[in-house]
Design a protein around this nucleic acid. Structure first.
Lengths: 285, 285
DNA sequence: ACTGTTTTGTAATAAAATTACATAATATAG
DNA sequence: CTATATTATGTAATTTTATTACAAAACAGT
């Protein structure tokens, strides 16, 4: 928890004067880090030692140390203490909040992700005869994105967002095939079935899903993200971004494992797109 | 550019003593922010005013101000100085780098995004008779995701990743229709055509694309992100995540504009999914 | 080797933060 | 409802820290 959040959360434990200090700081934290203790005391209409005590109450060594912490809290612009979008938020507020909450979600994802599982997944993917990406609803677009990436590697890759197609594909899978099932909750019944079917047919099933979910239990290997989601919006947002980044990581691991010669290939794929595009230089036609 | 980077880049402009100071700071920046000017001077084996002059050379007001800037540079954990994935990187390294570069990309996107344009886009979307999302290649999955979100709002929304369908759809569009064209480069010829056709038929065309690109010129309203992309990987990664977040922002703006009663509706949509899922509590079946 | 310039250090000064202590406010028990 | 204990706050002294002014040293160009 950063100092700014700390101030907000412990606003009730403050004394009357300390509260005055808190108010001034919260009103303009940017100014605070450029003020002396005397200036701040004057602004809050309290004495200098009160400010000092305020700092210590927040587990900092003193005023200069407090400013250091505050500066770090403010490093990424002026973060909203409450990142949840609220009814009254204007465009500026909700834009900032969504960027921030997404970044925060990625940060927790990074901390929680299991590197070993990623490494094993990359292992499995590089050795796959065929790779299938399955997702439903919001996760379908993640599956599509994965297909787009792995397709560039010139490996057999398919992607279905239709349960019937998924089912047929799963039934036809065999040893050496890799099926990647994507579901944030891990409780989508149809996808659990698909995973089970694929496994019965000796495919390796990788789940990008919640740890200890029904889907997770059907998988050979689980990549869980456990990202906090703002449920107020009733839409998957941060979770899906984290899934995409995970796909990026798997794709990157794949290319690295294949070595530099393989990267040449990727460049070719990218260059192949040139014909469909306007020239970068000559933009005036 | 943050102070830490500034020190590295201007290391040649330093005098002998200033360089000594720079070395000590770079060797242990974390310690620097908790040191006094005297301690740092001693460590660098220079005089205190030399340290002070060093700070001023970096456009800070003095030593305390310098520490503040340094603290901000260090705020985001210990970032890899080079966020680009390299051949020798192991799973741990490339995982961290991709998370970090994505977060960094979102941060620049947040700073550069045009709030007014977002607000106008939300305006246009809330008043749309019909919304169409068009993307090709990697951007197709972004379009799909957008469809998934806006579909929940119970507004007529379509999404095509097929140029023929896009073309037909664009030709059939009319006044009051909104077409959202998604392309990172903004140079995909086919999509430029689609945008032009849609506009000729009086549709409002929103472009999620690069500023001043051929596609941007065909649009009524441009939402540009200008996110730095790691071209070494030959795959769109950060740019696409930024696009998704932008979609989230537009969707959020949409729901807020519609008011709280509308949000009830969203909850219903979410609840409707329950039948397709295993119960959250009863996970042992 | 001399002269002007830049760099660096020493010592004095100024600014800022902290401590110790005193006073005021508030709460608690009788 | 008063006396007393406790906590909160302010004043003034002290200490720490940073800055300035100036002098000495190092250096570059002639």
């Amino acid at each position: 928890m950063n100092v700014l959040e700390k101030i907000v959360s412990s606003v009730n434990n403050f004394s009357k004067s300390e509260r005055k200090v808190a108010d001034v700081i919260l009103a303009n934290p940017q100014m605070t880090i450029h003020s002396s203790i005397a200036a701040l005391a004057k602004m809050a209409d309290v004495s200098e030692p009160t400010v000092n005590r305020f700092c210590r109450r927040l587990d900092t060594k003193g005023f200069p140390d407090f400013k250091l912490h505050l500066a770090q809290s403010l490093a990424n612009g002026t973060p909203y203490v409450n990142r949840h979008v609220e009814e009254e938020d204007g465009p500026e507020a909700y834009t900032a909040k969504i960027f921030e909450s997404t970044m925060a979600a990625l940060d927790t994802a990074r901390q929680r992700v299991d590197i070993n599982a990623i490494n094993r997944a990359v292992d499995v993917l590089t050795q796959a005869k065929k790779i299938s990406f399955f997702g439903l609803g919001a996760s379908a677009s993640v599956a599509h994105d994965a297909q787009n990436k792995f397709f560039r590697f010139n490996v057999p890759v398919v992607c279905f967002d239709d349960i019937v197609m998924q089912r047929m594909s799963a039934i036809n899978s065999s040893d050496g095939d890799v099926v990647v099932c994507i579901s944030h909750t891990g409780r989508t019944k149809n996808l659990c079935d698909i995973a089970a079917i694929a496994r019965e047919n000796d495919a390796t099933v990788i789940g990008i899903t919640a740890y200890d979910s029904p889907l997770a239990r059907e998988c050979t290997l689980v990549l869980s993200l456990d990202v906090p989601e703002d449920t107020d919006m009733y839409m998957p947002m941060a979770s899906r971004v984290a899934q995409l980044v995970l796909i990026d990581i798997l794709a990157t691991g794949f290319t690295l494992r294949r070595g530099s010669k393989f990267r040449e290939n990727l460049k070719k794929v990218k260059d192949s797109l040139r014909g469909s595009r306007f020239d970068k230089k000559d933009l005036n036609n």
